[in-house]
Design a protein around this nucleic acid. Structure first.
Length: 443
RNA sequence: GACCCUAUCGUCCAGUGGCCUAGGACACUCCCCUUUCACGGGAGUAACACGGGUUCGAAUCCCGUUAGGGUCGCCA
């Protein structure tokens, strides 16, 4: 039982990380962390033309964004360096030699490619998730021998994948269910090489909500879309965990330490999961509400910077706090708070039409400005009390003051709670903005 | 077409023979809170694919059908 778990994520760099791949990486990572094992990243870049350094960078960025750190692999190193298949030629060569010496290989007549001769029998895969699954290799027509090396000397996935898993001492191979039919072929390779294979666990695929296959273009398919869409990585990670796995009670929002403590392969589902971005959005909102102010500020920062909103934290924090319980994506934030940072904010035409153009609106604006101008304390509670007092004394509804004031100081019909918004704005700016509005719409 | 996997509300999950007139969450509808927009609270609509078995008893076990998905590359 002292077996040290070693698992890996072995993506082919294609320029983006698919949600399915990310989830595979996540399950491997979780499994490693749960069992105190080692999580390895290996880049399967045997297809030379298609793989670029930028594409590899995308893999790193996506994994790191999700918080999936690897213990061995590119940029980290490890006992089994290098972690790029393109740099492991000598190793493959020696394994190829072993197969050849064992009489397992032959060269194709026409092309000259090298094939591995399957043993013609039933091979059983004892999958940790799917259970025992038998594949019959008896018919050569149905399962022709597998090509492992091209005529130009380059290697085929099946071969290098198995060699690396042997070399890197993998104990468990957790991968997408699309690999299940490949597994008996890989098992034949292990046997021919005289190596005890790792345990296999095939996790269900992720499909679109309607059940169709997720392609690059579909919403939520690329990890980049979350980075660019204003998601909190911890929220996305939590949502991904629940795609094909559940803690078995009804908890859904689970902190990372809980996820690690509770995750295990025996609780992984067999049914394919349909992806629902709406639920992912809900998780994001929940995480934003619950996260500490510092983290909230940290994640909002890039979005503010991009929108040209720069201000010291002391000024930013109270403004952002106003939206913390309301926002679902960080990308929404700049637009919602931009009016705080310029006196030249735009007036929403519909809001102006609906409230400022209303008969008596400007008079009431002047009245509330008068009331507020004499206040010593300018906090939400006082502001609310005074506004209601004024409305009451004039026999009008508070709304007749609230709406014009909101539009006057922010230019819009919707926003944070009025009194809290005014408190953050402060007395000076509040009065100036009302005055500015009065002047502007007086005619 | 062959082989393999799967089958509970629209979606994600719970349920491993009686506790199920099937539970939670998202989404949707309505109500409350809030004279903004949200959050929050409450209520509601909504599912065991179908047909045979096994059993005193089946969402749970077996068989078949159907449906969905996957794999059959000198892609990974």
């Amino acid at each position: 039982m002292s077996e040290n778990v070693r698992v890996r994520f072995a993506p082919s760099p294609t320029g983006y990380l698919h949600v399915g791949g990310a989830r595979t990486a996540l399950f491997n990572w979780l499994y490693a962390r749960h069992h105190g094992g080692t999580f390895i990243l290996r880049i399967e870049d045997t297809d030379k033309q298609r793989n670029t350094t930028e594409a590899v960078q995308v893999v790193y960025d996506s994994l790191r964004w999700l918080g999936l750190d690897w213990d061995e692999g590119p940029e980290i190193g490890g006992d089994h360096d290098p972690y790029f298949q393109s740099e492991r030629d000598a190793i493959y060569e020696s394994y190829f030699q072993r197969l050849q010496e064992g009489g397992h290989l032959y060269q194709d007549k026409d092309g000259g490619a090298w094939r591995f001769r399957f043993t013609r029998e039933v091979v059983e895969v004892d999958d940790l998730i799917c259970g025992p699954v038998a594949f019959d290799f008896a018919n050569v027509e149905i399962t022709p021998d597998m090509t492992i090396r091209r005529p130009d000397g380059s290697w085929i996935f099946h071969f290098v994948n198995v060699v690396d898993d042997i070399e890197m001492r993998m104990t468990h191979v957790i991968r997408g269910e699309d690999h299940l039919p490949n597994t008996p072929k890989h098992l034949q390779l292990y046997r021919a090489l005289g190596v005890v294979p790792p345990r296999f666990a095939h996790i269900p695929l992720i499909l679109n909500k309607d059940g169709s296959k997720m392609s690059k273009r579909d919403q939520g398919a690329s990890i980049n879309s979350y980075i660019e869409g204003g998601y909190a990585p911890e929220a996305v990670r939590n949502y991904f965990c629940l795609l094909g796995w559940s803690p078995k009670d009804d908890t859904e929002v689970l902190p990372l330490d809980q996820l690690i403590a509770r995750f295990d392969l025996d609780a992984v589902n067999r049914k394919g999961a349909h992806f629902d971005i709406a639920k992912c959005d809900w998780f994001n909102g929940q995480y934003i509400q619950r996260m500490p102010m510092e983290r909230y500020l940290e994640l909002a920062q890039p979005w503010l910077a991009q929108a040209g909103i720069v201000a010291p934290t002391e000024q930013l924090e109270p403004v952002l706090a106003l939206e913390k319980m309301k926002v679902t994506h960080f990308r929404e934030i700049p637009d919602r708070i931009s009016f705080f940072f310029t006196e030249d904010y735009a007036y929403d035409l519909a809001a102006v039409e609906k409230t400022l153009r209303k008969p008596g609106a400007l008079e009431r604006l002047a009245q509330i400005a008068g009331t507020y101008s004499v206040l010593e304390t300018f906090d939400a509670m006082t502001l609310e009390a005074k506004l209601k007092e004024l409305a009451g004394s004039l026999g009008v509804k508070p709304a007749e003051f609230i709406h014009p004031t909101r539009v006057a100081v922010s230019g819009r019909g919707v926003g944070p709670s009025l009194y809290h918004m005014l408190e953050v704005l402060g007395k000076g700016r509040t009065l100036a903005r009302i005055q500015q509005t009065l002047t502007r719409f007086a005619a």
